[in-house]
Design a protein around this nucleic acid. Structure first.
Lengths: 243, 243
DNA sequence: CGTCTAATTGAAGCATCTCAACATGCGTGG
DNA sequence: CCACGCATGTTGAGATGCTTCAATTAGACG
């Protein structure tokens, strides 16, 4: 079932009662396939559904008048990047697919009605929203006070950790289908500098990153370089998949 | 009454029913005075109360191992910077006073009990939390994709707009008691560069900024330089004060 | 007055950017 | 199966926005 992804995500940040798990599983919506570059919604839209990522990778971004772009999040299966629509009418950023992806569009009223039946689930969605805000804060630290080397490694640590939490890694490897250009726009750096720094990272033996496949060879080293501490992600368990 | 500040803030982002206004007014808490540099809470704390800023200025920040600091928000009267404590146990950043300030510490259970009596107020608090996240996103754009000149002017535009919304401006002047060092740590720049860029801003006649008093001489120009568009703040009304 | 914090200025360095060219891989149509 | 086109990745070289270090000035306060 599509909502398995959502349940995995919820389970990774708190223990979920069986009744709530069952209620989540009943959430219905329209499933849509997306190609890289396709947008689910753009800045200013007034959505009547929330997006649940099922497969692939989505990203939120803002465009500036002079063509500059800033990515605000990378959203993996189980994430609901436009949950804000539950309480705010219009979107302040755009949401698009970075890779071949599937999403489920869940009508907002469907979610609100779940909240009425389970105040616990309402509470858990609030937690999810606040954890997302904590990720924003960590990204601000990244953008404001870390070097290019640290920024990249920190992002890779975060994505790896989040992928593990929903069981989408395979050992120390995971799929991260983002281009260097997109990484640059997430980290506030130029494409060229991303390329050079990634080369160093590869040359130093910390990672491999080829055609969207990330392999971490030295996790401890990576964490130390970047000052990564997963506590802000509030993960309590990790969904098992391989080994 | 202390909660007037909160009601002003709420009124600036949506219309507030009289019953809800009355209920907000009954919120009780401990009032505390703070000196600049004093912390209300630090990273890792598990608060049992939420902080409502009454006067002065607070700021959230994270410290890195090597002594670097990143400010995540500047919080003005009416703001509740640690509202996340409603749903998350521990804080992922510290909260401190930047100026002589007063805050009211409202027990979390007090707020939860208000939510039980008014689902509308629960909804409005969710909106407040989500608007805060929108401010984070705009700060990310600032940190990632704007020049020093743009970053500073954008911050000043935002603070001015938010102060106006709760009636704390006096014409085109408002109190913004932050040092250049703090501004640097909010904008991801060095103190020295902040100083030089501020000098230019003053020399160009856009603003005055002296001893924590900001005066804007050319609002339109400031907005154009920085690409500031207040829409992300979701203000529907402005509390009147002077003219 | 001395002391402390914040603001200011100069000078040198460097992390990162921009411009520009080239390489690689991959899908597509002939 | 090859030729082409396009997106992505790679590399070089020069420019610059911002940083760092270091010193001085200005204001606030007892």
């Amino acid at each position: 079932v599509p909502t398995t992804r959502l349940i995995n995500k919820f389970s990774s940040v708190f223990t979920l009662a069986d009744t709530d798990r069952a209620m989540l599983a009943t959430l219905k919506g329209t499933i849509i396939k997306l190609k890289p570059g396709e947008d689910v919604a753009i800045q200013g839209d007034r959505p009547n559904a929330a997006t649940l990522v099922l497969t692939g990778l989505l990203g939120r971004y803002k465009l500036l008048s002079n063509g500059r772009r800033q990515f605000l999040s990378f959203d993996i299966p189980g994430d609901m990047p436009d949950l804000q629509s539950l309480y705010l009418e219009s979107l302040d950023c755009s949401l698009g697919a970075l890779a071949d992806s599937e999403v489920m569009l869940i009508p907002l009223q469907e979610i609100h009605s779940v909240f009425e039946r389970s105040s616990e689930l309402a509470r858990l969605f609030s937690r999810i929203i606040l954890i997302e805000a904590a990720i924003f804060r960590e990204w601000m630290v990244n953008l404001g006070r870390r070097s290019a080397f640290e920024r990249i490694t920190h992002l890779l640590c975060e994505m790896m950790t989040r992928m593990q939490a929903v069981g989408l890694n395979r050992g120390d490897t995971c799929e991260l289908p983002i281009t260097q250009s997109q990484m640059a726009d997430a980290l506030g750096l130029s494409l060229v500098h991303i390329n050079r720094t990634m080369r160093e990272l590869r040359a130093s033996g910390f990672i491999d990153f080829n055609r969207g496949i990330l392999t971490v060879h030295d996790w401890r080293g990576l964490c130390e370089i970047s000052g990564f501490d997963a506590i802000y992600l509030r993960q309590v368990t990790v969904t098992q998949r391989d080994q």
